[in-house]
Simulated scan of single mutants.
Amino acid sequence: MYKKLSKILSLLLVAVLSTFAFSGCSKSTSTSSNTQKSSEEKVVNIFTWANYVPDDVVKKFEKKTGIKVNYTNFSTNEEMLAKLQAVKGSQYDVVICSDYIVEVMGKQKDVLMQPIDKANIANYKNVDTKYLNQEYDKGNKYSIPYTLGTQMIVYNPDKIKTDIKGYKDLWNPELKGSMVLVDDSRIVIGMTLKKLGYSMNETDKTKLDQAKAELKKLRPNVKVFDADTPHNSLISGDTSIGFMYGSQASAAVRANPKLKIVYPEEGMNIEEDNFVIPVKAPHKKNAEQFINFMLDGEISNAATTANEYINTNLAAKQFMSKEYLNNKAVFIPDENFKKGEHFKDLGDAAKTYDLIWSEFKQQ
């Protein structure tokens, strides 16, 4: 009886020890797995235009959080959308893109964005409410404003004696071979439609055919297409006049103060750029940390001072310099701003725009 009881107790002891051993092993494996996962999560993948988030801001974020930023850039919203569709909303953690493309993505059957949990982004309160709740994303379900920009004409008065007032002046035959255009179909076709007196979001085939014919007349004047650095050809003297983003116009004038900026009298495009998180973002929490960091007032000011776009952050105003506040390429007069038009989703007409643009560039 004693041996039998002793044997049973021995077996129970072995079982208990084995349980602890396996438990310890399991805990060790789990800890190792968590460490590996944590290590993998110290990354955030940003997808936007070149130089849109300044290097020093990126470095500050990395230093503060220990999260490495992988920065990938695109040239146009349409290029971004194609890449995001190709990876089915994965690979990237934060995308910074324009208002109308947020609208396009929001209407798709398989939405490529995930709703933003604003409770995890404390600095959301810093965003100026006049930039929230826009038509392209009511309630800001998927997007948070970063900056606001527009495009304008810049020219060298030493080389061009014509008085430049608007889009129509870009068609002057005297400008043959002297122009640089931002390489973006919506922007260039949009300004052509405005020249004709139409909306930048026109979808009527007859009116688009007119725009196509107008672009054919413009083509001899165009020497350079450049999405990222159109101002460089103005600075170098390779071109004398250009149509580009305000930040690019500012860079041109800073390099050559003789250059003049013109707000087209026909009306400008007003473009609101936003943070969005792709539906299958691999590092969602890091994405939220990055967006929250960018919405800090001091950081927001540092970013827009560097990229020279309109700041949408109320908390940033206390940090703004007089130079930034007086930058003609950044702060558009109210009378011009009120005439501005936002791009919208074109629906099936987007294919027509693509065809018009392709033919225009190949002429």
Results as ranks from 00 to 15, higher is better:
residue 307 N to T: 05
residue 264 P to D: 08
residue 301 N to Y: 15
residue 255 A to G: 14
residue 293 F to S: 07
residue 239 T to I: 10
residue 286 N to D: 13
residue 233 S to C: 10
residue 252 A to I: 01
residue 286 N to A: 14
residue 276 V to G: 03
residue 275 F to S: 03
residue 274 N to A: 08
residue 255 A to M: 11
residue 280 K to W: 02
residue 262 V to T: 11
residue 259 L to W: 09
residue 284 K to Q: 14
residue 264 P to V: 03
residue 238 D to A: 15
residue 286 N to L: 05
residue 286 N to H: 09
residue 278 P to C: 12
residue 254 R to Q: 14
residue 231 H to T: 00
residue 258 K to H: 13
residue 262 V to G: 05
residue 271 E to L: 14
residue 227 A to I: 11
residue 280 K to C: 06
residue 227 A to K: 10
residue 272 E to N: 09
residue 309 Y to M: 12
residue 264 P to Q: 07
residue 262 V to K: 04
residue 237 G to M: 11
residue 273 D to W: 13
residue 264 P to Y: 03
residue 298 E to V: 07
residue 241 I to W: 00
residue 252 A to S: 10
residue 235 I to A: 08
residue 250 S to F: 03
residue 314 L to K: 15
residue 310 I to C: 03
residue 249 A to R: 00
residue 286 N to Q: 15
residue 269 N to W: 00
residue 314 L to I: 12
residue 286 N to Y: 04
residue 296 D to W: 07
residue 307 N to K: 09
residue 293 F to T: 05
residue 237 G to Y: 11
residue 283 H to P: 02
residue 290 F to C: 03
residue 307 N to G: 08
residue 268 M to C: 10
residue 262 V to L: 02
residue 278 P to I: 12
residue 297 G to S: 08
residue 229 T to E: 13
residue 286 N to M: 09
residue 237 G to S: 11
residue 258 K to S: 14
residue 242 G to M: 02
residue 277 I to A: 05
residue 258 K to Q: 13
residue 252 A to F: 04
residue 258 K to T: 14
residue 278 P to V: 09
residue 268 M to Y: 08
residue 296 D to P: 06
residue 229 T to C: 07
residue 314 L to R: 08
residue 238 D to P: 04
residue 290 F to Q: 00
residue 287 A to M: 10
residue 313 N to M: 05
residue 233 S to R: 06
residue 267 G to A: 07
residue 259 L to F: 15
residue 278 P to Y: 09
residue 259 L to R: 02
residue 287 A to Y: 09
residue 235 I to W: 02
residue 272 E to P: 06
residue 261 I to K: 14
residue 311 N to R: 05
residue 249 A to V: 03
residue 305 T to P: 01
residue 244 M to Y: 00
residue 269 N to P: 01
residue 290 F to H: 02
residue 253 V to Q: 14
residue 291 I to C: 07
residue 231 H to D: 11
residue 308 E to Y: 14
residue 259 L to H: 04
residue 232 N to M: 10
residue 269 N to R: 15
residue 257 P to C: 11
residue 270 I to M: 12
residue 245 Y to P: 11
residue 297 G to N: 10
residue 282 P to N: 04
residue 257 P to R: 07
residue 243 F to T: 02
residue 297 G to W: 06
residue 273 D to M: 13
residue 281 A to V: 09
residue 271 E to V: 12
residue 226 D to L: 10
residue 298 E to N: 14
residue 248 Q to T: 03
residue 273 D to K: 12
residue 291 I to T: 02
residue 313 N to A: 09
residue 303 A to N: 13
residue 228 D to C: 01
residue 304 T to K: 07
residue 252 A to L: 03
residue 241 I to M: 09
residue 264 P to R: 00
residue 262 V to S: 04
residue 308 E to K: 15
residue 245 Y to G: 13
residue 270 I to P: 01
residue 297 G to D: 04
residue 254 R to G: 02
residue 294 M to V: 08
residue 301 N to F: 12
residue 229 T to Q: 11
residue 300 S to Y: 05
residue 256 N to Y: 00
residue 286 N to W: 06
residue 300 S to L: 04
residue 241 I to F: 05
residue 287 A to G: 03
residue 229 T to S: 13
residue 232 N to G: 08
residue 281 A to C: 10
residue 246 G to I: 00
residue 227 A to V: 07
residue 296 D to S: 07
residue 248 Q to C: 05
residue 249 A to T: 01
residue 227 A to F: 09
residue 302 A to R: 06
residue 238 D to W: 06
